[in-house]
Design a protein around this nucleic acid. Structure first.
Lengths: 201, 201, 201, 201
DNA sequence: GATGAATGAGGGTTCATTCAT
DNA sequence: TATGAATGAACCCTCATTCAT
């Protein structure tokens, strides 16, 4: 061939140029800072001190840069969903989903924030579609469609409360780890209450 | 020249052109549908069957169109905050804040959704700054800075859970009003639990 | 609306800017001189002392500029075909087709030359498709499908010999009108011979 | 370095890479299909499953690829002209020119078609210049400058009628060989008539 | 209360070409 | 005999905005 574009990812590459990685890094920084649309390829290139054309050696399009970055989030999401689909629909499973989801979120916090803040843009990009369908799948796994609406809302809210948590972080002082734990705890409570309310309601 | 641009707002106007209103309508539609950046003035003008220049007769800039629309949300927010600042920091007040906030949100649901989905874009627009500072103010009013972090997170989550609720709506079936009530209920519970956990914790 | 783009063409316009016409003129000049692909919008704009964006006020795309120019050739071609379809398939008709075709060709000689020299390019443009299908239609009208192949070839060659004639012009000296007449005469002879050869063959 | 680029052409080559040949093949295919300008070196390289840089090992420039291909047509043309220049300017010679020219054309039909359809592009390439001057030379050899204009036009038309024939082919059904013969016959007739008209005119 | 005509800046993308390895 | 990585120039096109009428 000639152009790379599909990361071989095989073990122990003979020290392939790290430009690709650097592009992804800088792009994510700028996308997160200014938004996807407002970040031009010129800016990315300038910050890397290469030409725009160099970006096109490594990626087919602007969207392709984003897609490649988003894999960091998409892959663990797919794995989480695959795992959850093999488990019983118990409270324990649901809580484990939340715990793992929390890990994923905080593991790619910049990327995740970016997606949240650029939903309108990302919506018709592959990245956005994937993310939406993942969230939908997670939603189905965490709620009980035969439960009362209040319970269902509570369950799904548990999931999204963790998104909110990430934005809330800035307004509440304290140790990050502690906050993160608190956010997860709130979410865990919510699914638990959803289950209880079904029984008692 | 005699361009208007600042709405006189007086009561017995001699039937001022409704074009201004139509622009706002169509603009919100398109902004919500495609995002702010991806919506061009050309599109807005075309859908209204006027020229781009006509838009500039009614509004100074593209941002100005958005600002004028956003007042529908900003005004009630300011009013809510002003009201809340005159109340005691009791649980009853906090719950009333949530109730009123819920009304505001559902009263401008399209606009609100738009802001959520275009955060990266509106962030450095007046609209976005206003919204952020309003949310911050509401946050301060609903949480107790002397409470344990877990309690603070719970309170703030109550607020944001209602945002999440709006996006969750689509994934849960049932009567809209019922869902709306359920979402509010979850939020009310959360502040209540925040208070309790302080006492018992 | 706002943008023109569809020529109103109505009688006695209140002196609409002639920029549109000037763009077409200059574009044809450059297209003919250098080819369609090799002529950039920058060049056209520069020669007119306007910006590239101005071109886009008057035409939707680069291809649209060409299409608008090509109408000068396409319209008479359509008319010729329409006329011929209403006539008997006699030798007289065929010869009249050639005479009219000659007039059309020499009436838009630059445009025609351009299309000939840029066939590979215009092939997948609307302009090219139209032209090809027009030529095909003329071909059908001038040849007799039941005649021997030699006769058919002779007829169709009559048509194309006039194209060749335009390029040959440069290599033969003499009064242009005289040459033009000679070219037409050769073509007229060819259809006549096609008819005769059928009878005698 | 040891780049080849000038074909050694010696007879007992130790099996020099056939990549060069494959590049020419694929390039001609694509040039003919899409035009010279619209065919990028990337495409050629991709179709061959090599890198663009590989093309530059075998050829100095894009134009060089074309030039090397065009030799297939240019060489026989030079030979034909050289031969004809040594012959008397008789009708028999002219008819033999046409016969040989027909052979050349049909022997490199794809290449010839390509040149015809990309005249605007090749015009300022060496390839185009060569072809134009060859045609001019052939024109001089086939027409009699002292004959009346009508006769000269007829002679030159004979030559070009064979070009037209190649495009006409598609619109007339029948055995290819038969059509080819018919086209040549028409051309032969035309030179013959040119001679006659001089005598009788 | 608008339109017609235009601009300047910038967007993403593609190209032929180079050169060290 | 090639490849990997990159460049510089140019491309078509779109945008928000302006201003005389």
């Amino acid at each position: 061939m000639g152009t790379p574009q599909q990361e071989p990812q095989s073990q122990a590459q003979p020290r392939r140029s790290d430009t690709r990685r650097r592009i992804q890094q800088v792009a994510l920084e700028l996308f997160a800072e200014q938004g996807y649309e407002k970040t031009s390829l010129r800016e990315i290139a300038e910050r890397l001190d290469v030409t725009k054309a160099a970006l096109y050696y490594h990626f087919k399009t602007k969207e392709d840069i984003l897609s490649s970055i988003a894999e960091d989030l998409a892959r663990p999401m797919r794995e989480l969903i695959a795992w959850a689909e093999g488990q019983p629909h118990s409270l324990a499973t649901k809580q484990e989903i939340l715990r793992r989801y929390s890990d994923i979120l905080w593991g790619s916090v910049d990327l995740f924030r970016f997606i949240q803040e650029n939903q309108a843009t990302v919506r018709e990009l592959t990245v956005g579609e994937n993310f939406r369908s993942s969230m939908k799948a997670l939603g189905e796994l965490i709620k009980d469609p035969s439960a009362p609406i209040a319970a269902q809302v509570r369950s799904v809210t548990a999931l999204f409360s963790m998104h909110a948590g990430m934005f809330v972080t800035q307004n509440v002082e304290g140790d990050p780890e502690e906050k993160r734990a608190a956010i997860l705890e709130v979410a865990l409570d919510l699914v638990a209450q959803a289950e209880t309310s079904v029984l008692t309601g």
